[in-house]
């Protein structure tokens, strides 16, 4: 049995962890880019970003003031026994984590009336039913500076490889200096409109070196990395070779009439943390 209490406490811990400790793969990508960057100003900015990670971790100050909309991917094993209401337990964990971690509450209850809920809930929860007894919880606090740069392109089925590359590059150019580059670009290709967007976001939970799980999409991701890093956007828009830290692509089947391409851009402060709970 997995209890509500276990779930809430796991989620609250993940919210705090993700916001204080930058993922090791992202830290490594920043360090690697610092080695390759030749612009003095951009090197200076990258070093400050790394210093920011160190301060956040040691002094327990959130990496960024936008501690995000709390996105939760819940992979629920179909043989897991969960006591109580799972959604309520997750939201309770978010509320506790944001309070105890001194994280910013950035959620308004209604998009037009705009009153802050004061708890950073509701979380954006995506459920996936998987085989097994485990409950895997992944928390991705997503800042909205970069979320606002999300794009969905419903391309023609005959548009082909180049059109996909160009659409994604267009999304990166449109984000430009605004969304705290260097970016990690999450891409979802295929499915319907909603699934493509979901895959693009989920791709951000993979390590920044993931590229894709399919060879032809790995090639595409590599090409995007090379082209994206020539855009001269650079760290925080100050120019240089470091525009992208990673491109991650997830794909799935789609319809004969379409080629959906969704782009979910993450800033350099790509934060996520996960935990497995086991049904005993």
């Amino acid at each position: 049995m997995i209890t509500s209490k276990q779930i809430s406490s796991a989620v609250s811990g993940l919210c705090i962890d993700a916001n204080l400790k930058l993922r090791p793969d992202v830290v490594k990508a920043l360090k690697d880019s610092l080695r390759k960057e030749t612009s003095l100003k951009s090197r200076n900015l990258l070093s400050i970003l790394l210093e920011n990670c160190a301060i956040a971790k040691s002094e327990k100050i959130p990496l960024c003031q936008d501690t995000g909309m709390t996105v939760v991917f819940a992979e629920v094993g179909q043989d897991a026994r969960i006591q109580g209401d799972l959604t309520t337990a997750i939201n309770k964990g978010v509320a506790t984590g944001y309070k105890e971690g001194f994280l910013r509450k950035s959620i308004v209850a209604d998009p037009l009336l705009r009153k802050n809920t004061g708890t950073n809930t509701p979380a954006m929860i995506y459920y996936d039913i998987v085989p097994g007894k485990k409950l895997k919880l992944t928390v991705l606090p997503k800042g909205f500076g970069s979320e606002n740069k999300s794009k969905l392109y419903m391309l023609n089925p005959t548009a082909g490889y180049d059109a996909v590359v160009n659409s994604i590059l267009k999304a990166i150019k449109e984000a430009g200096p605004d969304a705290c580059p260097p970016y990690v670009v999450g891409v979802g290709i295929g499915g319907d409109a909603a699934k493509a967007c979901y895959l693009a976001k989920k791709a951000l939970t993979k390590p920044v070196t993931f590229l894709s799980d399919k060879a032809h999409f790995r090639k595409l991701a590599k090409e995007l990395l090379a082209k994206g890093n020539k855009l001269n956007i650079g760290p925080l828009g100050a120019g240089g070779k470091t525009t992208l830290l990673g491109v991650n692509i997830l794909s799935m089947a789609t319809h004969i009439a379409g080629l959906p391409v969704a782009v979910n851009i993450s800033c350099h402060s790509l934060r996520s943390a996960h935990k497995n709970l086991q049904s005993s």
Partner: peptide, 20 residues
Amino acid sequence: VGPTPAKAGEVIGSCGPTTS
């Protein structure tokens, strides 16, 4: 900027810029 809440004994929380 919209900072994170300050912890006890601190002046301010995390306080970087938002999109202009």
